[in-house]
Computed example of a mutant assay.
Amino acid sequence: MGSRAVTSILFLCTGNSARSILAEALANHMGGGLIEAHSAGSFPKAAPHPMALQVLAERGITGDFRSKSWDEFAAPGAPPIDIVITVCDNAAGELCPIFPGRAIKAHWGITDPAAVEGEGQRAAFEAAYDQMQARIAALLACDLSAIASPDFPPVLARIGQMSGATPGKEPIS
């Protein structure tokens, strides 16, 4: 296997407390050094959702996860981003952020587990984890060296339509 550049991915959500944190954690954990994942939100919460951190920890994924503004990634000196993936959905009444720049953009909407209170919350987070894990696995099965190809954005879009996809919006442009 030849040397390959690391693909930098930014997962965006509104609150950066649940789905985008799961995506960041899974991509870095599963990526085997091929992916450098980050997450951010347009209106970040004070901290990641405790159940997101618990579900990750129970699966052996720990880290210094924090909710942060997407402004960090638009600022001078921010790491270059190759792919921006939104994971929230306006069909659920959320305003999904739009990220400026030349990065390839895709939408992988899944149901917000943080919107579930009480008894069903753990199951909602586990479902979100499983759905995101399947999407990251599908991404890793792709030839990441081909992200500059015009064929790559449709591949990302198809991954976003995997099981559990919200009926939501078109991918951001």
Rank of each mutant, 00 (worst) to 15 (best):
G109E: 02
R158M: 11
N28R: 12
Q131G: 05
Q133R: 15
V116D: 01
E117M: 13
P154S: 10
L56R: 12
W108Q: 10
A52N: 04
D89H: 08
L139H: 02
P150T: 14
R66K: 14
G41V: 01
Q131K: 02
G109N: 01
L34N: 09
R122K: 13
A37Q: 04
E94R: 06
L53Y: 04
P153V: 09
P44G: 09
L53P: 08
V6W: 03
G93Y: 09
A37E: 10
A75L: 04
E72N: 12
G2A: 13
R135L: 07
V87A: 07
A27W: 09
A114Y: 03
A18S: 13
G118V: 13
I35Y: 04
D64T: 08
I104Q: 03
R66A: 14
A124T: 05
A123P: 02
R122E: 13
G109Q: 05
G109A: 15
W108F: 07
A141D: 15
A128S: 15
L26S: 09
I147D: 01
G164P: 11
D71P: 00
F73D: 11
R135Y: 03
D89G: 05
M162V: 00
A115R: 02
D130Q: 14
A5K: 14
G41D: 03
A148L: 02
L140S: 12
P153T: 10
A25N: 11
I9V: 15
R59Y: 12
A47N: 05
H49Q: 11
G93S: 06
L22N: 08
A52H: 00
D130K: 03
L144S: 08
G15A: 15
R19S: 05
V55M: 02
G160E: 08
I98W: 14
A137M: 06
I35N: 00
A165Q: 06
H107F: 02
Q133W: 03
S145D: 15
L56P: 09
V6G: 01
G77K: 08
K105C: 08
R66M: 05
T166W: 02
S173H: 12
W70K: 14
E36Y: 05
G164A: 06
F99G: 02
A148W: 02
